[in-house]
Design a protein around this nucleic acid. Structure first.
Lengths: 207, 207
DNA sequence: GGCCACGCTAAGCGACCGCTCACCTTGGGC
DNA sequence: GCCCAAGGTGAGCGGTCGCTTAGCGTGGCC
């Protein structure tokens, strides 16, 4: 596949950068627990237990429970930004790049729903500093999508009333997938990605 | 105003049905606290404090903290359903009804962002029974929107590939407003409602 | 083989959680 | 004026939380 999807990656392979092994296992356990129950409802004992370790082992690799969420959020947002950047900077018309960006981004939210849920909805549980850092990454994501739409308008390929507002709506469509998508439901991530890409092209009035 | 917006109501007037007065004050305090910090990060002491009462007073009017979330969720979803029903059953073309439904629903999510946040994102904190009850209301909301789109397709006014998927996308656009909307931001709820209504008409290929 | 650094555990600390209970105040009926 | 129901409070219970500390096992280096 020559789209940006290859960077969407699998559910667990995305954490290869986290070392040593015990730290990665704890991080993956935390992602699962946060996605299922939410950050505040998850206990450090639960995380350690899922990783097959005692509660105290967590604090050898992470200073606090919040540091776990921070690391997860940063890695997740960097992945999201990577997906959008790859699509935005590839060859092709604005319509092709926008469709690639949306379908890849939606696929990531649907397929890696566990991670995406934590990344998109647990931001408010971070402290002010970490939160500000993550928000900066999020603004960069918006900017990538806005740039594609801007290009399409400049080239006369798109018909858009409000570029900023339409960008936000496109992001809404992608992000909200993490809220409702169900792996046991009637759609595959690919199908939702294709459908939403079509809908977004309609939203921007692509010729 | 002859749209469905009149049923969108104010932020606090929506809880007039809750009596006695102390129970309503506690409920409004809980809505604010849940919206700011999330259900699990909110303490019963915080809720009672916001309502100007001692921690024990909460348990005179509500059996548990979860009952508060349950009541909030049910009233909120009933309000959402009411807004969508009003728009779906009014006079007019499918396009007019869909635009009314989306703009009213978006206005409710933007203006009553505090309530909408709790209603849309704290569902998982409910127990299985309460959660099932709320999910039924949510399916009814989807059904109202789907019916409008179905009407438009049947009348030949809309051009839609996948009615069910498009319905979900429309709901995503509306609901996600509660995640990003900021009262200090550049838009009023009315403006976002109008923009999203336009985008939705494009999504369904309205003539 | 002695030794130490490292990764981990068992036990537990202080704080705070949801919730309860014994008691207090107050306003209306007779 | 007395009484009781309704609605409130202060204190606190049992439990669990995030996190710490003292000590244990083990693999690599000389």
């Amino acid at each position: 596949m020559s789209t940006a999807e290859e960077t969407a990656g699998g559910e667990t392979s995305a954490w290869a950068e986290v070392t040593p092994d015990a730290a990665r296992r704890l991080l993956i356990a935390a992602v699962e627990a946060f996605a299922e129950r939410g950050y505040h409802a998850t206990t450090t004992r639960d995380i350690a237990g899922r990783a097959g370790m005692s509660p105290a082992a967590l604090y050898i690799h992470y200073k606090t429970k919040e540091e776990l969420l921070h690391r997860i959020s940063r890695i997740g947002h960097e992945k999201a930004l990577d997906i959008l950047r790859t699509a935005a900077h590839r060859e092709g018309t604005p319509a092709e790049r926008l469709a690639d960006a949306v379908s890849s981004f939606v696929r990531w939210h649907a397929g890696g729903r566990t991670t995406a849920r934590v990344v998109q909805y647990e931001l408010d549980s971070l402290g002010p500093d970490a939160r500000a850092e993550i928000l900066a990454l999020r603004r960069q994501c918006d900017a990538e999508v806005r740039a594609i739409i801007q290009d399409g308008v400049a080239a006369g390929d798109f018909d858009v009333l409000d570029v900023k507002g339409t960008t936000l709506a496109v992001m809404s469509l992608c992000i909200d997938v993490a809220r409702w998508f169900n792996v046991d439901g009637p759609w595959t991530p690919d199908e939702v990605g294709a459908l939403d890409a079509d809908l977004v092209l309609r939203m921007v009035g692509a010729k």
